Amino acid sequence: MDLSLSKEDLAIQSRARAFAEQHLFPHEIATDERKIKEKTLVEIRKQAIAHKLNAYNHTKKDGGHGYTPLQQVLICEEIGKATCGLWTVVFKASTPLKHGTKWQRETFLLPFNAGKGRSCYAITEKDAGSDPSYVKTKATKKKGKWVISGEKWFVTSADASSVVIVHAHVDGDPKKPTLFIVDKDAPGVKVKRIPQFMHSYVYEHYEMVFDKVTVDDNRRLGEVGQGFDLTKEWFTETRIEIAAHCLGAAIRATEVANHYAEERVQFGKPIRDFQAIEFMLADMAVEIMAAKSLLYRVAAEVSEGMDPKLVHARASAVKLYNSEMAGRVVDKALQILGGRGYMRENPVERLYRDVRVDRIWEGTSEIQRMVIGGQIKKRGLGIYTGWGG
């Protein structure tokens, strides 16, 4: 069993680390204070291209670099060390667009992967989150066009996007979930509210209203009724990405805490020499080792062509463990830093706020447990407790 990373893997990881440290870390405080300038974001996007990180999850045919799922994880781990969601400036087209028509691929997928435009995803609503069957946004076909009406919450990065991928039910039927590509400035598209959240994410999470928005049939992404399957594929991919971001966040917090524990002297010796601190660092290191082992294993299995049904099952396990692990590790890091860890100028304070959402978005921890429990019931414990297959 070869567990080593290849030279190509290490080179990609190194590029991503250099990019994060040189082009994301320096802008964290400005982002947290909402003072980052658009010209800075433009320069970051240029550097993402220069470091071959744009569209990292797409094939070369789709305008990406053809990285394996394991290599994608290595990238997400490194950029995930940046606070304030700055990793999202590393742009990529929404996954469902790769299933689009020739026109959709040429108009949206390829340009977005090249940094010319961006899409955001609108699925959550006031009464529809973990259970998308409660979506009330409705699409009705009239005279060959689709009329979309509804309200969406938590449309992440909407302010940076040119189009919105809207999850709607055709004729109001939950059995007909369908995706539509809607221009953000189309008549009837309105921003209802821009809520503020615990973390200082680089972009906004709009609440949006779609008031009888009319689109041509060529804006329908996939078949009528295929929307949930396309969304599920996107969820599976993003859950693994989030797990990688959480791993990166935990590593950075631990590195900061470990360095501080070496430098901080109390009662005549570095605080790392006190067993209370030493044990916390030991627990943090083991948590990270376990999380990395799980994440890399699943990413390697996906790279080798694992059954998509197993990918879905194991993505939930990875997202659940790593998101909760990050919360525990960052909390210990802040405790080691004491009052300094509570200062906003310290990356651990920002990470503390950042990682809390990772137990919520793209499926709460409770939803992941439901998925895992259902998979055990359907396939047996071996899907998680076994090895291979």
Score class of each variant (00 low, 15 high):
Leu5Thr: 02
Leu5Phe: 14
Lys7Ser: 04
Lys7Asp: 10
Asp9Leu: 10
Leu10Asp: 11
Leu10Pro: 04
Ser14Thr: 12
Ser14His: 15
Ala18Leu: 15
Phe19Asn: 11
Gln22Asn: 15
His27Glu: 09
Ala30Asn: 08
Thr31Met: 11
Thr31Pro: 12
Glu38Tyr: 15
Thr40Ala: 10
Thr40Cys: 06
Val42Thr: 14
Gln47Phe: 14
Ala48Lys: 02
Ile49Glu: 08
Ala50Met: 06
Lys52Pro: 15
Asn54Tyr: 14
Asn54Gln: 10
Ala55Glu: 05
Asn57Tyr: 11
His58Gly: 06
Thr59Glu: 12
Asp62Met: 02
Gly64Asp: 01
His65Val: 06
Gly66Met: 13
Pro69Trp: 02
Pro69Arg: 07
Gln72Tyr: 04
Thr83Cys: 14
Trp87Cys: 08
Trp87Val: 09
Thr88Val: 15
Thr95Asp: 05
Pro96Lys: 09
Lys98Cys: 08
His99Asp: 09
Lys102His: 03
Gln104Ala: 04
Leu110Tyr: 11
Glu125Trp: 03
Ala128His: 08
Gly129Ser: 12
Thr137Asn: 05
Lys143Met: 11
Gly144Leu: 00
Val147Pro: 05
Ser149Ala: 13
Gly150Leu: 04
Lys152Cys: 04
Trp153Arg: 03
Asp159Lys: 13
Asp159Tyr: 07
Val163Cys: 03
Ala168Asp: 01
Asp171Val: 11
Pro174Ser: 09
Pro177Lys: 06
Thr178Ala: 02
Phe180Cys: 00
Ala186Leu: 08
Val191Gly: 10
Lys192Arg: 14
Lys192Val: 14
Gln196Pro: 05
Gln196Trp: 04
Ser200Asn: 14
Val202Arg: 10
Tyr203Phe: 12
Glu207Ile: 15
Glu207Leu: 05
Val209Ala: 12
Asp211His: 14
Arg220Cys: 13
Gly225Val: 07
Phe228Gln: 11
Phe228Cys: 01
Leu230Ala: 03
Glu233Ser: 06
Glu233Ala: 11
Phe235Glu: 09
Ile240Gly: 00
Glu241Ser: 13
His245Asp: 14
His245Val: 02
Cys246Phe: 09
Gly248Pro: 07
Ile251Ala: 15
Thr254Cys: 00
Ala257Phe: 01
His259Tyr: 14
Tyr260Val: 02
Ala261Gln: 08
Glu262Cys: 07
Glu263Ile: 15
Val265Cys: 11
Ile277Asp: 01
Glu278Leu: 07
Ala291Pro: 02
Ala291Cys: 03
Leu294Pro: 00
Leu295Lys: 09
Leu295Tyr: 05
Tyr296Thr: 06
Tyr296Lys: 00
Ser303Met: 04
Glu304Gly: 11
Gly305Thr: 09
Asp307Phe: 11
Leu310Val: 13
Ala313Gly: 11
Ala313Ile: 10
Arg314Asp: 14
Asp331His: 05
Gln335Thr: 15
Gly338Asn: 03
Gly338Met: 01
Asn346Gly: 12
Pro347Met: 05
Arg350Lys: 12
Leu351Ile: 07
Val355Ser: 11
Arg356Pro: 06
Trp361Asn: 05
Gly363Ile: 10
Thr364Leu: 02
Val371Phe: 06
Val371Gly: 03
Gly373Ile: 06
Ile376Phe: 06
Gly382Asn: 11
Gly382Phe: 05
Trp387Asp: 09
Trp387Asn: 13
